[in-house]
Design a protein around this nucleic acid. Structure first.
Lengths: 201, 201
DNA sequence: ATAAAATTTAATCATATGATTAAAATACTT
DNA sequence: AAGTATTTTAATCATATGATTAAATTTTAT
């Protein structure tokens, strides 16, 4: 085991940082371990020395990113003391900020989950089943006629889809990155209102 | 050129059909030409004989799929004679049906566009700029205070996101494929109502 | 300062992968 | 049926890629 001095952390972290960038940008299959090594400014062997294999390094990164995409959602949904509207507001604001700082994450995480759902089945220990959350109960009480999962799809779609569809929308509308940035910020307040409207529709 | 008898079409189509399946399922980078050949029940060399290269075959397939994802949208948006609500209804019904039959398409197309936006910039000759469409004009008239692109994101998000988020939602909610299928059908009517509610919010 | 431990590198390996080639098999034309 | 064109295959090539090894360098402890 190579783990005592301080500089270790630095080199190990350099590799992880490079891996974050390359993996999230290109996905597992399109990523070459040499790209990561180059990006980190280190030799290829070093990557295998520290992380044993591409697969192992990937698992570290994807877990991080999944946590970033999902970690904050469970506690908000479980909270018995907040209203539906407050939960939506919290989730929208938090996610849009997070995704503006990490726009590659949704396509990366959702793509890799689709590639290998079995691997993540064990990982997602949101054992505190979301279907039993306060949020689901509140949705069922508010709209007994609509499956709560619809509203989960709606809220996540309103928040996440723009980040996934951005490259396409840029192509077909010619909208500029600066404008997109502004739109994303606007959505933080709009989504709350839109979801409320859908709940009353 | 190998193109006279009738059986040609059959073999060529067998390869294309296999390519559709493997490419859309795994994406370009994770696809091995040998997988396609095996899936088609033919020899690897045959693939290069007919399509010259993996890249060329891929371009044929991705163009097909992009057309499936985008081809129907432009004429609906351009139609001066239909209302916003009618457009939303048409698009929702058409896309949900199309995506239920081709659930891999959104992640595939949006992923590949992100990988190589430049390649598709030329391809998307929706020169009939969507920002000048009747739909955009109608949205601006109805809600001068909201950028129409918001509603494009919303509508596409409501329609497409469930297909992209499905694997994740299955993991965190345990919802079964049969139930998902039912939900997708329900959304065809719900989305129309939800969008109307958002427009009035 | 010296020895041991940890880190980094260059070189190399084994396999995977896209592509090509030349020959065999099949279909088509007359 | 014979000859030509087309289709298909098995074998092979060249390169890319993940991983390993052994040696060199640097760091740490005494």
């Amino acid at each position: 085991m190579a783990k005592t001095s301080k500089s270790d952390l630095s080199t190990e972290e350099k590799i992880k940082e490079a891996a974050r960038k390359v993996f999230t940008q290109k996905g597992y299959a399109a990523t070459r371990t040499r790209d990561i090594a180059d990006e980190a400014g280190i030799n290829l062997a070093l990557l295998n020395y520290y992380f044993r294999s591409k697969e192992k390094l990937f698992e570290i990164i994807i877990l991080e990113k999944m946590h970033l995409l999902l970690g904050r959602i469970a506690p908000v949904l479980m909270d018995e003391k907040t209203t539906i509207e407050q939960k939506v507001e919290q989730i929208a604001e938090h996610y849009i900020d997070t995704l503006m700082a990490n726009p590659d994450i949704p396509l990366f995480v959702l793509g890799e989950i689709k590639t290998n759902p079995a691997k993540f089945a064990t990982l997602i220990n949101t054992k505190t089943k979301i279907v039993d959350s306060a949020f689901f109960k509140q949705l069922k009480a508010r709209r007994p006629d609509v499956n709560p999962i619809h509203f989960v799809f709606n809220i996540l779609g309103l928040i996440i889809f723009p980040f996934i569809g951005k490259p396409l929308l840029q192509l077909i509308t010619g909208v500029k990155p600066a404008e997109i940035h502004m739109l994303m910020n606007e959505r933080k307040t709009h989504i709350k209102i839109w979801v409320e409207a859908m709940l009353n529709a």
